[in-house]
Design a protein around this nucleic acid. Structure first.
Lengths: 187, 187
DNA sequence: TTTGCTTTTTACCATAGGTTAAAAATTATG
DNA sequence: CATAATTTTTAACCTATGGTAAAAAGCAAA
C-alpha cells in the first residue's frame, strides 16, 4: 500500500514542511462495498486518495448511467469541477469494493496552497492531468469505434479490469452491455 | 471591444497591482485569416485573448479533422495541457478570420502567479472552467444524438455560428458534413 | 444440491450515421 | 460577367450500434 504522500510526490516535489502539513490535515476513512462516498448534488469538499479498493465516479442521465472514471490503489480523485468551484456535483462517487481512502478537505487544501507554493503547484499539476485525460477521452470517443475503445480500455487498465463488471465497462465506454458483449464475441 | 483585463476579472477579482503587471507583460498581435497561431507539435507558450476575430483549435487524426473549440471576441484560449505541462501540443490553432490577439507568455504568467495570489487563483479558475466544459462535452457526446448536439451548438453559439462554416460545425460535432446536412434538412 | 438473483450472451429488427458519388449552390477570381 | 473553386446538399447503399426479449451462465444463499 503506497503512502499517499509518496504518490503526491509523483505529480510534483513537495518540500518537507508541506508534506508534514498535509499528513497532519489528512484523515483516513473506510467505505464499504457499494457505499456512497459522495452523493450527486453535494459539493465535493475533499480530495481523496485510494489506499486500497476501487471506486467509480458516475452520473445518470435519463435513466442511463455513464461512468466518468474508475480509481484504484494509489490514485487521487475528486469531482474536480465541484471541488474547485464549490458547486453541487453532477456525479456520484461510490465504492465498488471495500475501500480505504485518505481525505483532505478543500479548506485545508486551500490553506496549504497558500502556505506552500509546492502544494499550489501540485494542485495545478493534478488539475492539468485530469484535463489532459478528458481531452484524450473526447478525442477517442469521436475518433475511434467502440471495438478500439474497448481494447484500449482493457490495455490501459490491465491491473483492474478483472475487478470491474462488464456492465460497468460498457457504461464507461458509452455503449450498451449488449453491444459490448457482441464486440467481445466477434474476434 | 472588451479590454482583456476586464474579461479576466470575470473569472476572479484581480488586485490593481496584478492588473498593472499583467498589462505590462501582455503584447498584442495580429493574425491574418487562415494564419497559424500555434502549429501542432509546438509547446503552447502563451495564454491568448481574442480582442477581435475568431480562431479554432483542432487536431487531425487519420486524415480527419476534429475541432476542439472555437474562440471569439473576449475569450481566453490556449492549448491548456501543452501550456501547463510544457509538452508539445496535439492541436493546431489557426485564425478563421483576421484576428487581434493579446498574448501573455507562460513564463510571465508563472512569475505573476507567484507574485500575486489573485493571478494564481485566476489561473486555477480558468483551468477549472475548461475542465468543466470538457466534462460536459464528454457527457453530451455519449448521451445525446447528433441532432440534439447540433441544435445545442447553434443555441449556445448564436452570436458566432454565422461566421463558422457548416463543415467546421460538423468537425466540431464529430460527424460528417453529409450527416450534418441531412440533420439540417429533415425538420 | 437446489433455488433464486445477477450478470452476460445471443438473436432479430430498427435506425442513426458513415461512405461514395454527384448535383446544386455559393463564393472567389480573372 | 464568366469561369473556376469551394461549400453545401442530395441520394443510394452499407454498417455499427441501439432496443427489446429471452436464453444461458455465473454466483450466492438456504
Amino acid at each position: 500500500m503506497k503512502d499517499f504522500i509518496n504518490q503526491f510526490q509523483e505529480f510534483s516535489q513537495l518540500d518537507d514542511a508541506a508534506k508534514l502539513d498535509m499528513i497532519t490535515v489528512s484523515r483516513l476513512q473506510h467505505f464499504k462495498k457499494g457505499e456512497v462516498i459522495l452523493p450527486v448534488g453535494n459539493v465535493c469538499r475533499h480530495l481523496y486518495f485510494v489506499n486500497q479498493g476501487l471506486v467509480k465516479i458516475f452520473s445518470v442521465k435519463s435513466g442511463k448511467e455513464f461512468i466518468m472514471r474508475f480509481f484504484s490503489e494509489s490514485q487521487i480523485f475528486a469531482v474536480f469541477d465541484s471541488f474547485l468551484t464549490k458547486t453541487p456535483a453532477n456525479f456520484t462517487i461510490i465504492a465498488l469494493e471495500d475501500s480505504l481512502v485518505t481525505m483532505i478537505s478543500h479548506t485545508e487544501m486551500e490553506a496549504l496552497s497558500r502556505k506552500h507554493h509546492t502544494v499550489e503547484f501540485f494542485f495545478r499539476k493534478l488539475i492539468s492531468d485530469t484535463s489532459v485525460r478528458k481531452t484524450k477521452r473526447i478525442h477517442e470517443i469521436l475518433g475511434e469505434d467502440s471495438t478500439w475503445r474497448y481494447q484500449n480500455f482493457m490495455k490501459e487498465n490491465k491491473h483492474i479490469v478483472h475487478r470491474i463488471s462488464l456492465g460497468d465497462v460498457s457504461k464507461f465506454l458509452g455503449i450498451t452491455q449488449q453491444s459490448l458483449s457482441r464486440i467481445r464475441s466477434q474476434k
